[in-house]
Simulated assay, not measured.
Amino acid sequence: MKSGPRTKATDASPEETSAPRRSRVSGMDRALQVLDHLYTSGEPAGSYAIAKAVGAPLSTAYVIIDELVERDLLSRRPDGLVWLGPRLYHYGLAYARTLDFLGEASHVMHELGREIGETVQICGRDGDHMVVLAMADGPGHFRVMSEVGTRVPLNWTASGRLLIGHLPDAERIAVFKRSAKASPTERAMTDAAALSELAEEAFKKRLSIQISETDFLVSCVASPICDASGACVATISIVLPEHKVVANPELYGKAVCDASEAIERKLGWRKR
Protein backbone atom coordinates (compact mmCIF):
# COMPACT_ATOMS: atom_id res chain seq x y z
CA MET A 1 0.00 0.00 0.00
CA LYS A 2 1.39 3.34 -1.01
CA SER A 3 1.81 5.98 1.58
CA GLY A 4 0.63 9.52 0.97
CA PRO A 5 3.01 12.19 -0.30
CA ARG A 6 5.53 13.36 2.21
CA THR A 7 5.70 17.00 3.08
CA LYS A 8 9.23 18.34 3.04
CA ALA A 9 10.47 20.53 5.81
CA THR A 10 10.96 23.30 3.27
CA ASP A 11 7.22 23.31 2.58
CA ALA A 12 6.36 24.38 6.08
CA SER A 13 5.21 27.93 6.70
CA PRO A 14 7.71 30.45 8.09
CA GLU A 15 5.74 30.56 11.34
CA GLU A 16 6.27 26.80 11.76
CA THR A 17 9.97 26.66 10.88
CA SER A 18 11.52 29.88 12.12
CA ALA A 19 12.75 30.14 15.68
CA PRO A 20 11.26 32.82 17.92
CA ARG A 21 12.98 36.14 17.39
CA ARG A 22 14.18 38.25 20.24
CA SER A 23 12.97 41.81 19.91
CA ARG A 24 15.76 44.37 19.95
CA VAL A 25 15.30 47.29 22.33
CA SER A 26 16.60 50.59 20.96
CA GLY A 27 18.87 52.88 22.92
CA MET A 28 16.09 55.44 23.09
CA ASP A 29 13.70 52.90 24.58
CA ARG A 30 16.32 51.84 27.13
CA ALA A 31 16.88 55.46 28.14
CA LEU A 32 13.15 55.97 28.60
CA GLN A 33 12.93 52.76 30.64
CA VAL A 34 15.64 54.06 32.98
CA LEU A 35 13.93 57.44 33.38
CA ASP A 36 10.50 55.87 33.81
CA HIS A 37 11.80 53.47 36.49
CA LEU A 38 13.34 56.28 38.53
CA TYR A 39 10.21 58.40 38.14
CA THR A 40 7.95 55.52 39.18
CA SER A 41 10.09 54.36 42.10
CA GLY A 42 10.51 57.91 43.36
CA GLU A 43 14.02 57.36 44.72
CA PRO A 44 17.67 57.23 43.55
CA ALA A 45 19.07 53.86 42.49
CA GLY A 46 22.30 52.20 41.45
CA SER A 47 23.10 50.93 37.97
CA TYR A 48 22.72 47.26 38.96
CA ALA A 49 19.30 47.81 40.51
CA ILE A 50 18.13 49.81 37.49
CA ALA A 51 19.38 47.18 35.04
CA LYS A 52 17.56 44.45 36.95
CA ALA A 53 14.36 46.51 37.19
CA VAL A 54 14.18 47.30 33.45
CA GLY A 55 15.48 43.92 32.29
CA ALA A 56 18.56 45.29 30.54
CA PRO A 57 22.08 43.80 30.43
CA LEU A 58 24.25 45.44 33.06
CA SER A 59 26.78 46.61 30.45
CA THR A 60 23.99 48.29 28.47
CA ALA A 61 22.58 49.94 31.58
CA TYR A 62 26.01 51.35 32.47
CA VAL A 63 26.40 52.91 29.01
CA ILE A 64 22.89 54.37 28.93
CA ILE A 65 23.16 55.79 32.45
CA ASP A 66 26.58 57.34 31.77
CA GLU A 67 25.25 59.02 28.62
CA LEU A 68 22.21 60.36 30.48
CA VAL A 69 24.45 61.71 33.25
CA GLU A 70 26.71 63.41 30.68
CA ARG A 71 23.66 65.15 29.22
CA ASP A 72 22.29 66.23 32.65
CA LEU A 73 19.21 64.06 32.17
CA LEU A 74 20.42 62.12 35.21
CA SER A 75 22.62 63.23 38.10
CA ARG A 76 25.05 60.97 39.96
CA ARG A 77 25.27 61.43 43.73
CA PRO A 78 28.46 61.04 45.80
CA ASP A 79 27.28 57.57 46.92
CA GLY A 80 27.10 56.44 43.27
CA LEU A 81 23.31 56.35 43.03
CA VAL A 82 21.64 58.21 40.18
CA TRP A 83 18.54 60.38 40.15
CA LEU A 84 16.64 62.54 37.69
CA GLY A 85 18.80 65.37 36.39
CA PRO A 86 18.43 69.17 36.18
CA ARG A 87 17.73 69.15 32.44
CA LEU A 88 14.47 67.32 33.07
CA TYR A 89 13.51 69.98 35.59
CA HIS A 90 13.93 72.71 32.99
CA TYR A 91 11.92 70.70 30.46
CA GLY A 92 9.19 70.28 33.03
CA LEU A 93 9.08 73.99 33.79
CA ALA A 94 8.88 74.81 30.09
CA TYR A 95 6.05 72.31 29.62
CA ALA A 96 4.16 73.68 32.60
CA ARG A 97 4.53 77.23 31.30
CA THR A 98 3.20 76.08 27.95
CA LEU A 99 0.11 74.62 29.56
CA ASP A 100 -0.53 77.80 31.54
CA PHE A 101 0.20 79.95 28.53
CA LEU A 102 -2.09 78.13 26.10
CA GLY A 103 -4.89 78.04 28.64
CA GLU A 104 -4.79 81.78 29.24
CA ALA A 105 -4.06 82.65 25.62
CA SER A 106 -6.95 80.53 24.36
CA HIS A 107 -9.44 82.43 26.53
CA VAL A 108 -8.27 85.75 25.11
CA MET A 109 -8.17 84.29 21.60
CA HIS A 110 -11.85 83.30 21.76
CA GLU A 111 -12.82 86.64 23.28
CA LEU A 112 -11.06 88.50 20.48
CA GLY A 113 -12.68 86.28 17.87
CA ARG A 114 -16.15 87.07 19.22
CA GLU A 115 -15.37 90.77 19.51
CA ILE A 116 -13.84 91.22 16.07
CA GLY A 117 -15.85 88.58 14.19
CA GLU A 118 -12.81 87.07 12.44
CA THR A 119 -10.53 84.04 12.74
CA VAL A 120 -7.89 84.39 15.48
CA GLN A 121 -4.75 82.29 15.91
CA ILE A 122 -2.06 81.75 18.51
CA CYS A 123 1.23 80.97 16.81
CA GLY A 124 4.66 79.92 18.01
CA ARG A 125 8.10 79.18 16.62
CA ASP A 126 9.24 75.71 15.63
CA GLY A 127 12.85 76.12 14.53
CA ASP A 128 12.82 77.96 11.21
CA HIS A 129 9.03 77.75 10.93
CA MET A 130 5.97 79.38 12.43
CA VAL A 131 3.43 76.87 13.76
CA VAL A 132 -0.25 77.42 14.56
CA LEU A 133 -0.74 76.43 18.23
CA ALA A 134 -4.43 77.28 18.66
CA MET A 135 -7.20 78.71 16.53
CA ALA A 136 -10.72 80.12 16.84
CA ASP A 137 -12.71 80.25 13.61
CA GLY A 138 -14.61 83.43 12.86
CA PRO A 139 -18.42 83.32 12.59
CA GLY A 140 -18.55 84.41 8.95
CA HIS A 141 -18.18 82.46 5.73
CA PHE A 142 -14.51 83.45 5.35
CA ARG A 143 -12.23 80.54 6.21
CA VAL A 144 -8.46 80.29 6.23
CA MET A 145 -6.52 77.32 4.92
CA SER A 146 -4.19 76.96 7.92
CA GLU A 147 -5.21 74.78 10.85
CA VAL A 148 -3.68 73.92 14.22
CA GLY A 149 -0.31 72.31 13.55
CA THR A 150 0.27 74.11 10.24
CA ARG A 151 3.94 75.06 9.78
CA VAL A 152 5.18 77.68 7.31
CA PRO A 153 8.51 79.49 6.85
CA LEU A 154 9.01 82.44 9.18
CA ASN A 155 9.26 84.96 6.34
CA TRP A 156 5.77 84.16 5.05
CA THR A 157 3.76 85.61 7.90
CA ALA A 158 3.37 88.62 10.15
CA SER A 159 3.71 86.31 13.15
CA GLY A 160 6.88 84.70 11.82
CA ARG A 161 8.72 88.01 11.77
CA LEU A 162 7.61 88.90 15.28
CA LEU A 163 8.73 85.56 16.68
CA ILE A 164 12.39 86.43 16.09
CA GLY A 165 12.05 90.22 16.34
CA HIS A 166 13.63 90.29 19.80
CA LEU A 167 16.81 88.55 18.65
CA PRO A 168 20.03 90.42 17.77
CA ASP A 169 20.26 91.56 14.15
CA ALA A 170 23.00 89.07 13.23
CA GLU A 171 20.97 86.19 14.60
CA ARG A 172 17.83 87.30 12.76
CA ILE A 173 19.75 87.57 9.50
CA ALA A 174 21.23 84.09 10.00
CA VAL A 175 17.77 82.62 10.58
CA PHE A 176 16.30 84.26 7.48
CA LYS A 177 19.33 83.37 5.33
CA ARG A 178 18.83 79.67 5.91
CA SER A 179 15.05 79.61 6.08
CA ALA A 180 13.48 82.30 3.87
CA LYS A 181 11.60 80.82 0.93
CA ALA A 182 9.36 82.11 -1.84
CA SER A 183 5.68 81.97 -0.89
CA PRO A 184 2.86 80.58 -3.08
CA THR A 185 1.86 84.13 -4.02
CA GLU A 186 5.53 85.11 -4.55
CA ARG A 187 4.87 88.24 -2.49
CA ALA A 188 6.79 87.21 0.63
CA MET A 189 10.13 88.95 0.97
CA THR A 190 13.19 86.67 0.97
CA ASP A 191 16.08 89.13 1.44
CA ALA A 192 17.50 88.28 4.86
CA ALA A 193 18.77 91.78 5.74
CA ALA A 194 15.51 93.45 4.74
CA LEU A 195 13.48 90.85 6.62
CA SER A 196 15.60 91.38 9.74
CA GLU A 197 14.94 95.11 9.60
CA LEU A 198 11.19 94.56 9.18
CA ALA A 199 11.16 92.06 12.06
CA GLU A 200 12.91 94.50 14.40
CA GLU A 201 10.60 97.36 13.44
CA ALA A 202 7.45 95.26 13.84
CA PHE A 203 8.60 93.94 17.21
CA LYS A 204 9.28 97.44 18.53
CA LYS A 205 5.83 98.58 17.36
CA ARG A 206 4.30 95.35 18.70
CA LEU A 207 2.39 95.09 15.45
CA SER A 208 3.01 93.26 12.19
CA ILE A 209 0.72 93.25 9.14
CA GLN A 210 1.08 91.13 6.02
CA ILE A 211 -1.21 91.29 3.04
CA SER A 212 -1.56 88.42 0.55
CA GLU A 213 1.99 87.18 1.11
CA THR A 214 0.97 83.57 1.77
CA ASP A 215 -2.54 83.32 0.30
CA PHE A 216 -4.17 85.64 -2.20
CA LEU A 217 -6.70 88.09 -0.70
CA VAL A 218 -5.86 86.87 2.83
CA SER A 219 -4.20 89.12 5.38
CA CYS A 220 -2.85 88.77 8.90
CA VAL A 221 -2.53 91.32 11.70
CA ALA A 222 -0.33 90.07 14.55
CA SER A 223 1.08 91.22 17.87
CA PRO A 224 3.84 89.59 19.96
CA ILE A 225 3.26 87.87 23.29
CA CYS A 226 6.43 88.54 25.30
CA ASP A 227 7.58 86.88 28.49
CA ALA A 228 9.05 88.65 31.51
CA SER A 229 12.48 88.83 29.84
CA GLY A 230 11.02 90.57 26.78
CA ALA A 231 11.41 87.63 24.40
CA CYS A 232 8.59 86.89 21.98
CA VAL A 233 7.32 83.43 22.94
CA ALA A 234 4.23 83.46 20.70
CA THR A 235 1.90 85.75 18.80
CA ILE A 236 -1.82 86.37 18.59
CA SER A 237 -3.11 87.26 15.15
CA ILE A 238 -6.30 88.06 13.27
CA VAL A 239 -6.63 86.38 9.87
CA LEU A 240 -9.11 88.12 7.61
CA PRO A 241 -9.86 89.24 4.04
CA GLU A 242 -7.42 91.72 2.56
CA HIS A 243 -9.99 94.44 1.88
CA LYS A 244 -10.94 94.68 5.57
CA VAL A 245 -7.39 95.38 6.68
CA VAL A 246 -6.84 97.91 3.93
CA ALA A 247 -10.07 99.71 4.90
CA ASN A 248 -9.42 99.83 8.66
CA PRO A 249 -5.91 98.79 9.79
CA GLU A 250 -6.18 100.83 13.02
CA LEU A 251 -9.21 98.86 14.24
CA TYR A 252 -7.59 95.46 13.83
CA GLY A 253 -4.18 96.65 14.95
CA LYS A 254 -5.49 98.02 18.23
CA ALA A 255 -7.64 94.95 18.88
CA VAL A 256 -4.78 92.49 18.46
CA CYS A 257 -2.32 94.62 20.48
CA ASP A 258 -4.83 94.91 23.32
CA ALA A 259 -5.27 91.11 23.24
CA SER A 260 -1.53 90.37 23.40
CA GLU A 261 -1.13 92.75 26.35
CA ALA A 262 -4.07 91.10 28.10
CA ILE A 263 -2.38 87.70 27.80
CA GLU A 264 0.88 89.07 29.17
CA ARG A 265 -0.92 90.62 32.15
CA LYS A 266 -2.76 87.38 32.90
CA LEU A 267 0.54 85.49 32.98
CA GLY A 268 2.29 88.12 35.08
CA TRP A 269 4.65 89.10 32.25
CA ARG A 270 3.42 92.69 32.02
CA LYS A 271 2.85 95.25 34.75
CA ARG A 272 -0.71 96.49 34.95
Rank of each mutant, 00 (worst) to 15 (best):
M1S: 10
K2V: 14
K2I: 10
K2W: 13
P5I: 15
A12W: 11
P14D: 00
S18D: 12
P20K: 15
R24S: 07
V25C: 04
V25L: 01
S26Q: 05
G27E: 09
R30F: 04
L32W: 05
Q33C: 07
L38K: 04
S41E: 15
G42A: 05
G42H: 10
E43F: 13
P44V: 13
A45Q: 15
I50G: 03
V54E: 02
G55Y: 05
L58E: 11
I65W: 00
R71L: 14
R71P: 15
D72Q: 15
S75E: 14
R77K: 13
R77W: 07
R77F: 06
P78N: 08
G80K: 06
V82D: 00
W83R: 10
R87T: 10
R87S: 04
Y89I: 15
H90G: 07
Y91L: 11
A94T: 14
A94Y: 11
G103Y: 09
V108Q: 05
V108D: 02
H110D: 07
L112W: 06
L112H: 01
L112C: 10
G113I: 03
E118D: 07
T119L: 08
T119R: 05
T119H: 06
V120Q: 09
C123R: 14
C123G: 12
R125D: 01
D128F: 03
D128L: 14
M130K: 03
M130A: 05
V131P: 10
V131E: 09
V131I: 13
D137E: 13
G138V: 09
P139K: 13
G140R: 14
H141K: 08
V144Y: 03
V144E: 01
G149V: 10
G149N: 12
R151M: 13
S159R: 11
L162Q: 06
L163M: 10
L163E: 04
L167W: 05
P168A: 04
R172C: 03
F176H: 05
S179W: 02
K181I: 02
P184W: 12
R187L: 14
R187E: 07
T190K: 08
A193G: 06
A194D: 14
S196C: 14
L198Q: 09
L198D: 05
E200Q: 13
E200P: 00
E201L: 15
E201D: 15
A202E: 01
F203M: 07
K204W: 11
S208R: 02
I209K: 06
I209D: 06
I209G: 08
Q210N: 10
S212C: 12
S219C: 01
S219D: 00
V221W: 00
S223P: 06
A231S: 09
C232M: 04
C232H: 05
V233R: 11
A234N: 08
T235E: 04
I238S: 00
L240Q: 06
K244E: 05
K244M: 07
A247F: 12
L251R: 13
K254C: 08
A255G: 15
S260F: 00
S260V: 01
S260M: 01
I263Q: 01
E264I: 02
R265P: 12
G268V: 03
W269D: 12
R272T: 08
